[in-house]
């Protein structure tokens, strides 16, 4: 329970950066933190104490594995997170090249 709550705290730190920061790069960092928090929560939910990683090494041995499904879901999500982060950084780079600042308040003033 406490372990799950620490993931929620990481999520809230990321959300804090997204909502209240005025620097565009800090907002992208907040998105990355939220992604880590959700991936970690999934992997922790699938854990069973004393069990092994879900790799079969002997055909006839009894299967004592942790849950493979959350791991499969997170595996695709990690690579998607990299793609979305790269796309966000591209937009941020273009905005900086146009306005020469990361401050979203300044960018709002310079609109047009």
């Amino acid at each position: 329970m406490i372990i799950f709550l620490s993931c929620i705290i990481l999520f809230l730190i990321g959300l804090y950066a997204i909502v209240t920061k005025r620097n565009l790069l800090k907002i992208v960092i907040g998105f990355a933190l939220v992604e880590y928090a959700i991936n970690l929560l999934f992997a922790l939910i699938g854990f069973r104490s004393g069990m092994l990683a879900p790799i079969i090494t002997q055909v006839d041995a009894p299967h004592r594995f942790v849950d493979p499904i959350p791991q499969a879901l997170v595996l695709t999500a990690i690579v998607i997170a990299l793609g979305t982060t790269a796309l966000m950084l591209t937009v941020v780079l273009r905005i900086y090249n146009r306005y020469k600042t990361f401050d979203i308040a300044e960018i709002r003033k310079l609109k047009g």
């Binding site: 991936n39 992997a43 922790l44 699938g46 854990f47 069990m51 092994l52 990683a53 879900p54 790799i55 942790v66 791991q71 997170v74 595996l75 990690i78």
Partner: peptide, 8 residues
């Protein structure tokens, strides 16, 4: 690694 997810 600690929660037995080497792929991840």
């Amino acid at each position: 690694i600690l929660v037995q997810a080497p792929d991840l």
